[in-house]
Design a protein around this nucleic acid. Structure first.
Lengths: 349, 349
DNA sequence: CTGAAAGCGCTAACAC
DNA sequence: GTGTTAGCGCTTTCAG
C-alpha cells in the first residue's frame, strides 16, 4: 500500500495543496471545494502524515510516561488512568520504562529530541542530577511523587504521612503495641517518605515498641526475605506495616511458612490497596493512595501546563483512605476462616 | 530552554549544515571538522530533532502496542517484554488501549498516519473488518493471538488446545470426573479458543460429566458471578476449569463464600499462570502460556519484518506448561493449611 | 572531503 | 476563497 500525500489529493480534486489542506482541516473553503477535496481524499484513502504535521505544527500530540517499575501494579493502574485522559484529548501515550538500562535522567535528557510534547515521570529516586535535568527540560512535565520543596515543579503526590498514620492508628486501636515496619529500599523516594511517615505516626503513641527493616525491593520476594528473620524469633512483633502491598503479601507468605496465624499471631498491613490486597487471604489491610486519581490528575495537569506554560506550578495531593481487611482485624468482613478472637492478643498490648 | 538546531551547530563550528549532519552521524568528515562539530554540539546542548529526522528518513523509530484490556496482568507482562526488546533496538513504544473508545480497527486504520513503523496488536475479537484493515495496513504488524488460517500474517500464539489438555488431564488424574468450564465471553478469540480446547480435551476421556458457562468478562468479578450459581447446587461439579487466572480467582472466591473447601469439595484451575495464581491461597493451579516469551517473540518478529518486508509470514507458537498448586491437588506444595485427604473425593469419581 | 541545494509532507502567511 | 511560496529541521544527492 503506497503512501498517498496531500499533493495527490489536491491534484485529484483539481485544487492547490493549500486549498486541500484548508478543506481537510475545516478552515475556510467554498462548499464545492470542500466537497471535491473530501471526495478525493476518501477515494484515495488519504490520511495526513503525522510526522509532517508534527514538524510543521511544532507539536507531536504525543506524551510520555516514564516509570521505573512497570511490574508494580500501582504504576500500571496509573498508566491506565493516564492513557484514558491522554487519548481522550487526542494525544498518544509513549511508554518509557526507566528500570532497565536507561535511567530517568536519560529520559529527561532525551526530551530535547522533541518526540513528545510533555512528560509524566514517576521517578524512584530523586537525585540532584535528575532535578538539574528537569530544570533544564525543554518541554512541560509533571512529576508523580514527592520532590524537595525547593523544586517548583508541577507535582501530583500521595499523602504518605497520613497513610502511615492511618495504618498505625488502626493497629494500635486493634491492640497492637509492637509494630515493625518493613520498608522497600530506603534510598528511594517512596521508601524515604513511608519510613518518615511511619516514624512520625508511631511517635504519636506512647509505649509502643517499634523496629524498622529495609527490604531489597518493593516486591513480594523481597518482602518475604525481609520478614522471615523478623518473624522467626520469640520477640517477634505483633504487627507488621509493609511499605507497599507487594511487600505486604511477602510478609503474609513468610508468616504462613512459619505457621503463624494472621491476624491472631501477627497483623499485617500493606500500602496502595492494589487488587492483590483484595484477593489474598486473609485480605490485606491497606491504604488506598489513589493511584487512579493520581494518574488522572497528572495527565490533566500536564495538559493544562501545555495549554498554559506561564501558570504557576501546581501541586496536587490525593488523600489516602484506609481499607481494613482480615490481615489486621479478625472482625473484618473478608476474613475467610473464622479464627480465634484477638481479645487475648489485645490483652498483651 | 530554546530549541537548538543543526544550523546553529554548523554556524558555531564554522561549517555547512551538511558537514555538521555528516559529522554528527559519523559519516565521512575530516577529523578536525568532526571535532569542531562535536564541540559545537556539546557546547550548545544540541540533540537532533526526532520529528525532522523521522520526516526525512521515513521512519519514526516508534512501534505501537495495541491491547484491549491493559487491566489484565497478562497483557502487562507482554508489554514489559515487548518494551524491553523494543527499547534495546532503539525504538520507542507507543501504547494504544483499544478497550475504551477506539476499537482495534480504528488503531489499524490510524496506522496510515505514519507515527509508528510497526504494530503489535493483541485483538480480543478478530472480525472480518479487522482482517480487512490488517490486509490493507501500510506498515508491518504482528498479531498476538490466533487468526483464521486464511490470514497469512505474522503471528505469535499460545497453544490453547494443549493448555486445556494439560489441565483436564491433570484434573482427571486427580480423580475429578465432573468438570465445569467457566469461560470469558465466548465471542472473543481467547474465549473461543479455550472453549474449543476444553471441548476437545474432555472428549479424550470417557465417562466425564462436563458443562460450560460463559462469564461476562475475563475478570475476577465476572468469574465470581458466573461461579456462584454453578457451585451453589447439590449437583455441583467436582472441578472448575477457568478460562484465565482472573476468572479462576473469582471461582475461588465464590467457593469460599459458599463454604466449599478447595480442593476437597471443589478443584479449581486457571490459565496464564500470572503472579495472582502464585499468591492466592490455596495457590491456583494454572497453565503458563508464556506471556513473556510471546511478547518478546512478537517484538523480535516485528523487527525482523521491518528489516525484511519480503520474507514469508511467520507463525510462532509458544508451548504451555502446567503448574500444579493447591487449588487442584492436596499434595501440591503451596497448600497453606493441610486439609483432609482427597481420597474420599477420588472415590467418587 | 565539503558546501549548495533539494525536498520529506504538511501548514500558514501572503498576495491575488 | 484560492493559489503561490516559504519554510518546520533534517539528510542526502550532486557538484566541486
Amino acid at each position: 500500500m503506497v503512501r498517498v500525500t496531500i499533493t495527490q489529493v489536491a491534484a485529484r480534486a483539481g485544487v492547490s495543496v493549500a486549498s486541500a489542506s484548508r478543506a481537510l482541516n475545516g478552515l475556510i473553503a467554498s462548499p464545492e471545494t470542500a466537497a471535491k477535496v473530501r471526495d478525493a481524499a476518501r477515494e484515495l484513502g488519504y490520511v495526513a502524515d503525522a510526522t509532517a504535521q508534527s514538524l510543521k505544527r511544532g507539536r507531536t500530540l504525543q506524551l510520555g510516561y516514564a516509570v521505573a517499575d512497570i511490574g508494580n501494579p500501582v504504576y500500571v493502574e496509573m498508566m491506565a488512568a493516564i492513557e484514558q485522559v491522554v487519548s481522550a484529548s487526542g494525544y498518544r501515550l509513549l511508554l518509557s520504562s526507566t528500570g532497565t538500562g536507561s535511567s530517568s535522567v536519560d529520559v529527561v535528557r532525551d526530551l530535547g529530541r522533541g518526540y513528545v510534547d510533555g512528560l509524566i515521570i514517576s521517578p524512584l529516586r530523586v537525585t540532584d542530577e535528575l532535578l538539574t535535568a528537569l530544570a533544564a527540560a525543554p518541554i512541560p512535565f509533571v512529576v508523580l511523587g514527592r520532590l524537595p520543596d525547593s523544586a517548583a515543579f508541577d507535582t501530583v503526590r500521595a499523602d504518605s504521612p497520613t497513610a502511615m498514620r492511618l495504618v498505625v492508628d488502626h493497629l494500635v486501636a486493634e491492640g497492637r503495641r509492637d509494630i515493625a515496619f518493613v520498608n522497600g529500599p530506603a534510598d528511594t523516594t517512596p521508601g524515604a517518605m513511608r519510613r518518615d511517615g511511619f516514624i512520625d505516626a508511631v511517635a504519636k503513641h506512647a509505649d509502643l515498641r517499634t523496629r524498622r527493616i529495609d527490604s531489597l525491593d518493593f516486591t513480594i520476594a523481597a518482602g518475604y526475605d525481609a520478614a522471615l528473620p523478623l518473624l522467626d524469633r520469640p520477640d517477634r512483633p505483633t504487627a507488621v506495616v509493609a511499605a507497599n502491598d507487594l511487600i505486604g503479601v511477602g510478609v503474609l507468605r513468610a508468616a504462613e511458612d512459619l505457621g503463624l496465624r494472621v491476624p491472631v499471631d501477627i497483623a499485617v498491613t500493606g500500602l496502595d490497596n492494589t487488587e492483590l490486597a483484595e484477593v489474598v487471604r486473609p485480605g490485606l489491610t491497606s491504604v488506598d493512595l489513589g493511584a487512579k486519581e493520581r494518574g488522572r490528575a497528572a495527565a490533566e495537569m500536564l495538559l493544562a501546563r501545555i495549554a498554559d506554560a506561564a501558570r504557576p506550578p501546581q501541586s496536587v495531593t490525593v488523600p489516602p483512605a484506609l481499607v481494613v481487611r482480615g490481615s489486621s482485624s479478625a472482625s473484618a468482613p473478608s476474613a475467610l476462616r473464622r479464627l480465634e478472637p484477638v481479645d487475648e492478643e489485645r490483652a498483651h498490648g
